[in-house]
């Protein structure tokens, strides 16, 4: 009971904070669309080529947007002392971490999920492939949020940590990228994609269960500095 209450109120609090800083919601979204815009300019406007590389572009852009957003995940809470209070509270820190990441995902990734189909249409993907892209993003972005949170928790006490965060987190993002973009590719070729979706779901379960423990340990370390 106490746990549920704490979970919900932390979620509510993070929402309120996020909606009072609307820029931080918009930034990953703008970043996502800008990165996808760069590719047609870079490789040329040939529809056929763009259609082939569209799944990769969407996923790479989503991954970079997730990385950008992860940088802010614990930053303000660390600076104003909220994080310290969370670490000190008698409630289990991994659970509180899940609440924070859930709020973060709802605020930063869900708008991206809504925008992705529009961009996919612009790249000429078929309806079925777009559906699969949505599904993979739905399963994959929470994994990105959890893994990104590990890196963010490890580096939150450091100044100017953007590059370091990328170095820590991007290698760990690679499996999600592989299965995500591959599922869309396979769907565009008209083949079944249940295998990739199951694997993405497995990664989601794994990150939901294990990552909060690592994040909690990393936060304790960062706060005690």
């Amino acid at each position: 009971m106490r746990l549920t209450h704490a979970f919900v109120s932390l979620l509510y609090r993070d929402f309120t904070v996020a909606f009072r800083h609307r820029n931080e919601i918009l930034n990953p979204l703008l970043f996502f669309s800008l990165v996808t815009l760069l590719f047609p300019l870079g490789v040329g406007p040939s529809p056929q080529l763009l259609q082939t590389i569209a799944p990769g572009i969407l996923w790479v852009a989503a991954l970079l947007a997730a990385l950008l957003a992860a940088d802010n995940l614990f930053r303000t809470d660390y600076e104003d002392g909220t994080l310290e209070q969370l670490v000190l509270s008698p409630l289990p820190l991994p659970l509180l971490v899940i609440a924070k990441i859930l709020a973060h995902w709802l605020v930063s990734a869900v708008p991206l999920l809504l925008l992705a189909p529009l961009l996919a249409v612009a790249f000429g993907l078929e309806a079925l492939a777009i559906g699969v892209a949505e599904l993979t993003l739905l399963l994959g972005t929470p994994v990105l949020a959890f893994v990104g949170a590990i890196g963010s928790a490890l580096t939150v006490s450091l100044k100017r940590n953007g590059m370091l965060l990328a170095l820590l987190v991007l290698p760990l993002y690679m499996p999600v990228l592989i299965f995500g973009s591959n599922a869309v590719d396979t769907a565009a070729a008209g083949l079944p994609v249940s295998g990739q979706l199951y694997l993405l779901a497995a990664m989601l379960v794994l990150s939901l269960t294990l990552a909060p423990l690592a994040i909690a340990a990393a936060l304790k370390m960062s706060v005690s500095q």
Binding site: I150, L172, M174, P175, I178, N182, L199, M221, Q225
Partner: peptide
Amino acid sequence: MASRAVAILALVGIVNIPIIHYSVEW
């Protein structure tokens, strides 16, 4: 502190290495 941070990172990495390895192979 740095060693503790690195220890956490190394453990996260060891869980991920098989996943990365097999996904890359696939």
